[in-house]
Design a binder for these strands. Structure first.
Length: 679
DNA sequence: CGTCATTACCTTTGGCCACC
DNA sequence: GGTGGCCAAAGGTAATGACG
């Protein structure tokens, strides 16, 4: 619905302004100088109650982050092919001035505007100003502006740079803050109590070293403090790297102390900032952030039919009665993209997210290596963990603990059928049908226990290494909150149940499975659990190596023990294994006998304890050196040769590992930032 | 219609704390 | 020391009504 306006009612200025061939361009010109000869105002709206005018008009395809403003109004006519309402919101939302909305989206249907005689919407913001430190330099405070130019930004930066020490150097900042605190407290006569006098001044001295190995330590004390007990102030300065002691000494002991005059600050924060004080400890104390108000108004108008008229007008009126705020509004299109990526996969950590291939694509698009190279507002990335947390909370409203799982299973019952065959408060079993089928085709599986993924629970994983895929295939996952034998028995029963529930229609596989069950039952009656374990279980290499090193740590002194024991891991047959272990045991006996002969006391450590924790507690079985037949002796020689070869290659490996450890220790010893380590 | 004031709800932010 | 979880407070938004 549109109202036609007789051409006669169109003001000349409007007609002239509508002539897009002759736009009125005002770019980086000095508006103040032009004010004397300012052109007649251009009407933007034609309403009977109050017409809106603009003094300046600029055509553009993108609204600047710091739109210009003017007394009679500075307006931008923004044109873009296929302009959408979202684009308008994005551009208006990206301006760097904090603002509050005066009103939003008012329809104007009866009166024409600069956009023509079609209905339009009209919205309005008010600039909220900035927050300035109470010690802001008066010139900076009064840096009213209409246009943010490079010169203005440099001028603002110069006020920040005029502070005594670089704001970026944390150590210098801390030292300066310490110095200021000491001076202030001395000036308040708060440190020397009743003995405090006008002449009390803080000085930095070094203590006399106590003993040959101690070093002099820095002290801040009152200049009136003598030897021994004194009511005057004395404080030992902590040498923990946070303070630059040499700088503190220079500041405190210099005959020309920094002038006692107050210093000025250059801190400007967005009005939206919740900081109470500026980030700089001044001589006169921390500076409270104070709201510097502003009366600038922003208005924007856009036609109902953006397809037909892909224009909108943005108008800014009044002077900003404050210096320009720092550029911290993040570019909206990029922010939307990041938000979408986070919503898609909120289970990443912030650093994983920033290094993800999706983010890498964004960096590549801009030809940069990190976000802060795209826009300075990304210098602070604290919003990333918050958004991840929020997205996770939305995705898992009941959390990701047991309650969350229960919630998910109720919401999505098929989850139970397809992946969680058993769920109780103590044990959660995860297995799919494909995993169950895979399980039945295997001769062996690996069992691993993880303590790290969940806070209170442990995770037991049955997996198999597939050489064709060069990867580990998980077969079965149990999350358990108990660690008792009963709970493990229950877990292994549940493996049976899970496989059965998924594969009950597979006759052939079921036969295999039943056969295995019968086999286990029959053998369990006749054999001890140790025998069954020996028959069925191969323990983890890492646990074996840990066991070997543990024995050495406990005091086993047999020469070449580590290399020989670890060589056992590379044997290929049971015979080689038995021979190897007997060889080591015999050597150990010999070694012990020698040590006893020399009356050297040794640790009572038994090598046969070298197995995984499950068997470790058992008493070692008596080993008998067998009497060998001739045939066996020949076979033994072959095996001994093979064992020695293995041992030799292992010795080399051991040496290489040792060298690597030494190198790592040296690296660690260097004074550098320690990296976090996960074990 | 332009503007202001009010209100209720939504979102962001700085800071605290526990944990690894 | 970095990180994540969480909270209170403050800023922002949207809707609405009143007035000139």
């Amino acid at each position: 619905m549109s109202t036609t306006l007789p051409p006669s009612t169109m003001p000349d200025a409007f007609q002239q302004a509508l002539d897009l061939d002759q736009p009125i361009y005002l770019e980086d010109e000095d508006i103040v100088a032009e004010a004397a000869s300012s052109p007649p105002p251009i009407p933007l709206t034609f309403t009977p109650t109050k017409e809106t005018f603009t003094q300046y008009l600029e055509y553009t395809d993108i609204l600047p982050e710091y739109p210009q403003t003017a007394d009679g109004g500075y307006s931008y006519v923004v044109y873009r092919d296929k302009l959408q309402l979202a684009d308008i919101n994005e551009m208006v939302g990206s301006i760097q001035y904090s603002r509050t909305k005066s009103y939003c989206g008012r329809h104007v249907t009866k009166y024409p505007s600069f956009l023509g005689d079609m209905p339009y919407f009209h919205s309005s913001y008010k600039c909220s100003g900035v927050k300035l430190c109470q010690y802001t330099h008066p010139e900076l405070k009064n840096l009213y502006h209409r246009h943010v130019t490079t010169e203005l930004q440099e001028q603002v930066a110069s006020y920040r740079a005029s502070l005594p020490f670089s704001e970026e150097d944390k150590r210098q900042k801390t030292t300066y803050a310490k110095y200021n605190a000491v001076i202030r407290t001395f000036n308040n006569r708060a440190l020397c109590g009743e003995s405090s006098t006008e002449s009390c001044k803080p000085v930095l001295k070094w203590s006399d070293p106590q003993g040959a190995l101690s070093r002099p330590r820095p002290l801040i004390l009152c200049s009136n403090r003598g030897e021994g007990n004194s009511p005057h102030w004395r404080e030992l300065v902590k040498v923990d790297g946070q303070l630059d002691i040499a700088m503190l000494e220079r500041l405190l002991n210099s005959p020309h102390r920094l002038t006692e005059e107050n210093e000025y600050c250059g801190a400007i924060e967005q009005f939206a900032s919740r900081l109470g004080y500026c980030q700089y400890d001044h001589k006169q104390g921390p500076g409270r952030l104070i709201h510097s108000k502003c009366n600038v108004t922003f208005h924007w108008y856009w036609p109902h039919d953006l397809n037909q008229y892909p224009y909108f007008i943005f108008r800014s009126e009044g002077d900003h009665t404050h210096p320009p705020p720092p550029s911290i509004q993040r570019p909206l299109p990029l922010i939307k993209e990041i938000r979408l990526l986070i919503q898609r996969d909120p289970e990443q950590t912030p650093s994983q997210f920033l290094r993800s291939p999706e983010m890498q694509k964004i960096y590549d698009r801009y030809g940069v290596a990190s976000l802060n190279e795209i826009h300075e507002s990304f210098n602070c990335l604290a919003f990333i963990p918050r958004w991840l947390y929020k997205a996770r909370s939305l995705k898992y409203p009941a959390g990701q603990d047991f309650a969350g799982l229960e919630f998910e299973t109720r919401k999505n019952p098929s989850l139970v059928q397809s992946y969680i065959p058993f769920l109780s408060e103590d044990i959660i079993v995860c297995m799919t049908e494909q995993q169950a089928r895979m399980f039945l085709t295997l001769e062996s599986v690996e069992i691993d226990m993880s303590f790290k993924r969940y806070r209170d629970a442990k995770e037991l994983v049955l997996a198999v290494f597939l050489p064709e895929q060069s990867g580990i295939f998980t077969l079965y996952r149990v999350i358990t909150y108990k660690e008792t034998t009963e709970s493990y028995t229950r877990i292994f029963t549940l493996i049976d149940d899970a496989i059965y529930s998924y594969t009950r229609f597979m006759d052939m596989d079921l036969g295999q499975y039943k056969g295995l069950a019968v086999y286990l039952q029959e053998h369990c009656d006749n054999l001890s659990h140790r025998d069954i374990i020996e028959e069925l279980v191969i323990f983890c290499r890492i646990h074996f190596e840990r066991g070997v090193r543990g024995l050495v740590k406990k005091g086993l002194t047999m020469p070449g023990f580590t290399a020989r024991a670890i060589a056992l891991l590379n044997v290929e047959t049971a015979e080689e294994w038995m021979l190897g272990t007997q060889f080591i045991i015999a050597l150990n006996r010999q070694n012990k006998a020698q040590q006893e002969a020399q009356n050297t006391p040794t640790q009572d450590t038994e090598i046969t304890n070298v197995t995984s924790s499950g068997v470790q507690k058992e008493s070692p079985r008596a080993t008998v050196q067998p009497t060998l037949t001739l045939e066996a002796q020949i076979r033994e020689q072959e095996l001994r040769k093979r064992f020695l070869e293995l041992q030799q290659s292992n010795d080399l490996l051991e040496k290489e590992l040792q060298n690597r450890r030494i190198r790592e220790e040296e690296e660690e010893a260097r004074p550098q930032r320690k990296s976090r380590r996960r074990t």
